[in-house]
Design a protein around this nucleic acid. Structure first.
Length: 623
RNA sequence: GGGCAUGUAGCUCAGUUGGAUAGAGCGUCAGAUUCCGGUUCUGAAAGUCGGGGGUUCGAGUCCCUCCAUGCUCGCCA
């Protein structure tokens, strides 16, 4: 593992310290260091974020691992390292004298003036210290990253299952975009395949107008027709045969079928767009049908690579290291015995196209699939075949980003009382309605007067924020229990709690605190805040340290593709800020302290807004 | 039966290359408030990290095994 992957706070300092520690180790133990380098495993100081605040900012654990090979006690080794570090002028400029603690940990604390200067620098940095990917030297940032997410099915309504993919995918795309990657957000909608054959066949018989006129039926009707069609398909062999013929017609470009299909897609698309609009999500639609022209080439490629086997009439690739029910090798079917293609073929065509160099493809170097964990096997198989076919360029990343189920209070898959799947639209509506009711109750209690626009605006923002935040704040791989009561709670790790911290800071600005944030009366931050920020209270230092962690957290989210890490950080930042706000006066402080404290407020608000923005969550000035 | 994932406080969940006494929120109990919005803050109780074995100076984290739960396993997507 390269050393740039560790994740203590403040990447820049961490990298400097890591270098200094390595040099110190080489000076302290030249023979062991030389041997280690010769063996291809240079001595590692094991620099990490301090596990507790009282241990400082960083800790180096390397001494413990060296005890055995060096035949010395860990504390002795730590002492030798410490002596070398104290002779290093650059280290002394960065850190206070290190402490040896416990069995042999070396605790490092950054100098207050170093922290204050870094904080001051961030006040004038719109990126808040987060480097662009191109600046951190991580490969070429020109090749697009493709995030494949949301992917609802035509003629079906979006439900909670699409919620997670949509929200997680959007957040990951935002983080990657912020880091400067060109991101292609692809909506791989289910707009192709057998279901259209049966739907069109059914509609031709019972509601032909739906296939020739836009708006003849709404999505709700379509969903009902879809159910009926599915039922007939399962029961009626003649219907099945007609449906299959219809699929063939559609796939071969028959104009009547094609037009009917187009109308169905348009109808669904309007519905999807409403949801995406509400959730502030941008997506480029590129459905399964897009890859139709490439399906035969996929099979031909696999044939040429000598991977295809015909088994029971179907063309398949047998997967390495995967077994089916009876212990037989597991095939990935790319062409059915009736000559038709299935979803594996489409997914293979998509991978092939996405990695292919333009203009024949997207030229991606990194492709991310955000789908539920139940598809892990499917993607493992598809990815394996794509690799063996040679479609994945050297050094490219191809990964499935799985997520768990949304469950109800009973721990089972979320359903309505009547047992149906929960429509996404209804779920969002309920969140906003509950927020509004709660807000109106509070307004009465606090005897506040607000107009309807304000109430609507706040309820919508908070309601949608709560839904998104609840989804993003748990580790995506585990199932999570959906609960309006928990996600809308005003305290705890919830969207409202975070939003309230932003509101408090806006309150300080309204009461006369100049945050230098571009309001008509304020000048640039350079003029508003002193060059030297002065902090005295422990609550201030805690906030300084928390604020400076942002760059590390973003790097971690990008590496692990785990938005919940960002949520945890923003929650902790809000807690540290609330402690500061509660215990340290800002507006009533002495002028020198006041300016520095306003700077903390300003950077806290900026950090929360930026972080929530990366989660796709809007903030408010009042609530 | 095979594969993958999950199992941490009463509940919902974190836990970053293996590191110091396992963390948070809710709930419970006990406190704070002339103050920038109390949607706040301080503190306490609460754990055999599913069980067992192993590797290691050190294991919630890695390995083996067993148990429980969920998902998945050739022509749906």
């Amino acid at each position: 593992m390269p050393s740039c992957l560790f994740s203590p706070p403040m990447l820049r300092f961490a990298q400097a310290l890591d270098t200094q520690l390595r040099a110190a180790m080489e000076r302290a133990f030249p023979e062991a260091a030389a041997e280690a380098i010769a063996a291809g495993r240079p001595l590692d100081p094991q620099l990490a974020q301090a596990s507790k605040p009282e241990f400082g900012d960083f800790q180096a654990n390397g001494a413990l691992a060296l005890a055995k090979p060096l035949q010395q006690s860990p504390r002795q080794i730590a002492a030798a390292l410490l002596a070398e570090l104290e002779a290093d002028v650059a280290f002394g400029a960065l850190c206070l004298p290190p402490q040896i603690a416990g069995p042999g940990f070396l605790n490092l604390t950054l100098r207050p003036e170093v922290l204050a200067a870094e904080l001051r620098r961030r006040l004038t940095d719109p990126r808040l210290g987060v480097p662009l990917a191109s600046e951190s030297g991580a490969g070429s940032a020109v090749a697009p990253v493709i995030v494949d997410f949301s992917s609802p099915n035509i003629a079906k309504e979006m439900h909670v299952g699409h919620l997670r993919s949509t929200i997680i995918g959007d957040s990951l795309a935002r983080v990657l975009e912020f880091r400067g990657h060109p991101v292609l957000r692809l909506n791989h909608v289910g707009d192709w395949g057998t279901q259209f054959g049966m739907l069109i066949t059914h509609l031709k018989q019972v509601a032909p107008e739906a296939l020739t006129r836009a708006d003849a039926v709404d999505l709700g009707d379509l969903v009902a027709f879809y159910r009926q069609a599915k039922q007939r398909f399962d029961e009626d062999e003649a219907f099945q045969a007609t449906s299959r013929e219809e699929v063939v017609k559609l796939q071969s470009g028959d104009s009547v079928s094609r037009r009917a299909w187009q109308l169905l897609c348009d109808q669904s698309r309007r519905e999807f767009e409403q949801i995406y609009g509400r959730l502030d999500i941008r997506l480029s639609e590129r459905g399964e049908s897009f890859y139709n022209p490439y399906l035969e080439a996929v099979v031909a490629d696999l044939e040429a690579a000598d991977l295809l086997v015909v088994d029971a009439g179907a063309k398949c690739v047998f997967l390495e290291g995967m077994q089916g029910k009876d212990g037989n090798p597991l095939p990935l079917i790319v062409q059915k015995s009736d000559g038709g293609f299935n979803y594996a073929t489409t997914d293979l065509a998509a991978i092939r196209y996405r990695f292919a160099a333009p203009p024949a493809g997207d030229g991606a170097r990194w492709v991310i699939y955000v789908t539920d964990a139940g598809q892990a096997n499917h993607f493992a198989g598809v990815f394996q075949v794509a690799r063996r076919a040679g479609w994945i360029p050297e050094g490219a990343r191809l990964e499935h980003v799985p997520f768990g189920l949304v469950q109800g209070d009973d721990g089972k898959k979320l359903k309505t009382r009547s047992g149906d799947t929960v429509r996404l639209k209804d779920l969002l509506d309920e969140a906003v309605e509950r927020c509004e009711a709660d807000l109106r109750r509070r307004l009465v209690e606090e005897e506040r007067q607000e107009d309807d626009d304000f109430v609507q605006q706040v309820a919508t923002t908070v309601g949608l924020a709560a839904v998104k935040y609840a989804d993003l704040s748990t580790n995506r791989i585990t199932n999570y229990q959906f609960s309006f009561d928990r996600m809308l709670a005003l305290q705890g790790n919830t969207a409202p709690y975070l939003l309230y911290a932003v509101v408090r800071i806006a309150g300080i600005a309204r009461k006369g605190g100049d945050l230098g944030d571009g309001a008509a009366t304020s000048a640039e931050p350079q003029a508003v805040f002193p060059d030297l920020l002065l902090f005295s209270e422990p609550q201030e230092w805690a906030l300084v340290r928390e604020l400076l962690k942002l760059d590390t957290v973003i790097a971690e989210v990008e590496q692990e593709l785990l938005p919940n890490r960002l949520c945890s950080y923003l929650f902790e930042l809000s807690q540290v800020f609330n402690r500061f706000y509660d215990q340290v006066p800002v507006l009533k402080a002495e002028p020198a302290a006041r300016a520095s404290r306003l700077a903390l407020c300003r950077l806290t608000a900026d950090t929360l807004k930026l972080g929530l923005g990366l989660l796709g969550i809007a903030t408010l000035e009042r609530m």
